[in-house]
Nucleic acid binder design. Structure first.
Lengths: 132, 132
DNA sequence: TCTTGATCCTGTAGTAACTACAGGGGCTAC
DNA sequence: GTAGCCCCTGTAGTTACTACAGGATCAAGA
């Protein structure tokens, strides 16, 4: 199932130009070309691109995405390095999860207290501004 | 406790120039100025700025942050509107939480299976590429 | 009192991560 | 054979910052 650029982008949920951009900066490998010069992608490209798109939506920078990809691609030699990095990433992710839980709680609370004419005060801003 | 721009940025955890940028695009209100023309911020500015920084780190665009702020600032008239918006945001947040949980699980699994010389294969990319 | 250092001001230019467009070519289908 | 859709390349524009230049303010020390 070789995919062309447009179809790859569509399935990964990203813009068609983004594919070319990631190729240019080395985040996606240059794919083989078919006879007519069109880029020809495989499942593994789709997998990788979808991961990148999702990680970006979760607030990771492209540099952080690069680090994660290198981690799973096996760029690090020793187990200690891998563990260190994996756990550091996991901690960062936990922080994000906590923040999101707080946001969600605040929004649901607001929605629940919304009845009739009364629009309640939503504490989401105050809650998420605490320096934890 | 009036704060100047540098101290506000430092406490909120963002760059000093970002403050001016948010002011320019209308995300932060223009603060009063002291005698010498310096910007003079209050607690509420710090609260707002910290919220923005955190929301950005969680992958929300500035436009989405604007929407969240309008929601809590009371820009929407009816309760139905507020509920609709709040729940939509909460759903989006739940999706992010799910993705982060999967990433975290994959990373911890990888770290746990790391022993001695063996560096295991990490399924984080494959897992997060599933279109759920 | 003078100067050094830190901070502020404004305007503008540079960077990261896309996104859009112009000009041209390759298929397929009526 | 031409209309419509997709692809190619190069380049320019957008979003969200971030850095820098040139100058003013102000507290503290020599």
């Amino acid at each position: 199932m070789p995919l062309r650029r447009g179809e790859l982008a569509r399935r990964a949920g990203c813009n068609i130009e983004t594919v070319r951009y990631y190729e240019r900066i080395g985040l996606l490998p240059n794919p083989p070309r078919s006879e007519n010069g069109f880029r020809s992608y495989e499942e593994r490209h789709l997998t990788r691109l979808t991961f990148i798109r999702r990680a970006r939506e979760l607030g990771f920078t492209l540099e952080e995405v690069q680090n994660l990809l290198r981690l799973v691609d096996g760029g690090h030699s020793t187990c200690a390095q891998v563990q260190e990095l994996a756990l550091r990433h996991a901690d960062e992710i936990q922080r994000k999860i906590n923040d999101l839980h707080q946001m969600q709680h605040a929004l649901k609370e607001m929605s629940a207290q919304c009845s009739g004419e009364e629009v309640p005060k939503c504490p989401i801003v105050e809650i998420l501004s605490e320096t934890s």
